[in-house]
Design a protein around this nucleic acid. Structure first.
Lengths: 186, 186
DNA sequence: CCTTGATTTCAGAAAGTTCTGAAATAACAT
DNA sequence: ATGTTATTTCAGAACTTTCTGAAATCAAGG
């Protein structure tokens, strides 16, 4: 790998983080490289910059493509595909979040709902089912919230984030104005 | 493994999910088992229920312990440690979220901040630094929001979740009442 | 419809992780 | 102290994921 030190540090770190974020090291590095690049890169640029095999780059690009985190561009007088990363950091955060949700929470919800429908065979199962119910409820609340917030326009989301802990205050006011749904007690 | 079918299905699923959630399969299974159990279990109960090695259970329990997802209990007339999972599903969700943040976003922020302080050596680095700045800003906004919301009492958080996309409406009202910090334009 | 170069696929090699069994350690009761 | 039972550690086995190089496929220009 032969990159300016600042860029190299970022690329390496993002690669390591990638593994924790469920995208593999190479994919993370490719993404990082495209994200900071000041021009579209083609596959061989990436091979050279990262020192990994051509085929590995090809797989990585394909994966980033299915996640819609990069764009394929054709430059005039060049048959090779060129790639750029989405500019907006929110797009990345959103994509990663959606992707993880699809892989990590949706299947769990499906299983939990299915288990809730079964007839418990004995006391142990009855108890277990009650616990599953509590968990299902919490996860459903969380995901349906996430669903709805994700549909808001970006600026609204940013407003919400800027508000920070201040939501509490706004919630109070909201409650007084009867904007909130009545609280169901457990 | 020899468990009532409903419990077994849950335990197996949670094990698989565990790997995606950054906790390994056995750890996930142990947690799931304790979560639905109607009494505290000791290590050998778990070995028998899951059919994994004693040492694996020991490691798993230790890990869950450091994550504070289980409690160690001493029953009278029994020298063995007994374990229970935290009851409240919110506790689990919170813990997993905090843990992941510690492992997955905080280190990134540290690196990003450090890279932002460096003197760019050339045009490419200058461009890269600008991109890193955008990313840093987005991540900081998100994490500081999460920080503040996590400090709210549980019921406030539940209110917020119940509100769903309705936050938009409340934000409008909040803006009119001058509760929101003025929006800085990019 | 053939040539040339770009891209993708895929089987096996390399690297990384999780799990086990055996041995070491700790904790308690006598 | 000593025996007994519970727990932890750790080296290597088993398994999983990632990466490579060679071969197959694809696409544009003549």
């Amino acid at each position: 790998m032969n990159l300016p030190p600042l860029i190299q540090a970022f690329v390496l770190h993002f690669g390591e983080m990638g593994s924790r974020w469920g995208i593999n090291r190479t994919v993370g590095q490719i993404y990082a490289l495209l994200y900071v690049a000041d021009r579209p890169l083609h596959a061989d640029d990436i091979v050279e910059a990262l020192g990994v095999s051509r085929s590995n780059v090809s797989m990585g690009l394909k994966e980033l493509d299915t996640w819609r985190l990069i764009r394929r561009k054709h430059l005039p007088d060049d048959r090779r595909d060129h790639f750029t990363a989405l500019e907006d950091p929110w797009a990345i955060i959103r994509t990663l979040a959606e992707e993880r949700r699809k892989r990590e929470v949706d299947p769990t919800l499906t299983v939990l709902r299915d288990l809730m429908l079964r007839e418990p065979a004995n006391g142990a199962e009855r108890h277990a089912q009650a616990r599953l119910g509590e968990m299902t409820e919490a996860i459903e609340l969380l995901t349906s919230w996430a669903d709805q917030v994700q549909r808001l326009p970006d600026e609204r989301i940013v407003d919400l984030l800027r508000l920070g802990g201040g939501v509490a205050k706004v919630l109070e006011v909201g409650a007084k104005l009867k904007l909130l749904p009545g609280r169901k007690e457990a």
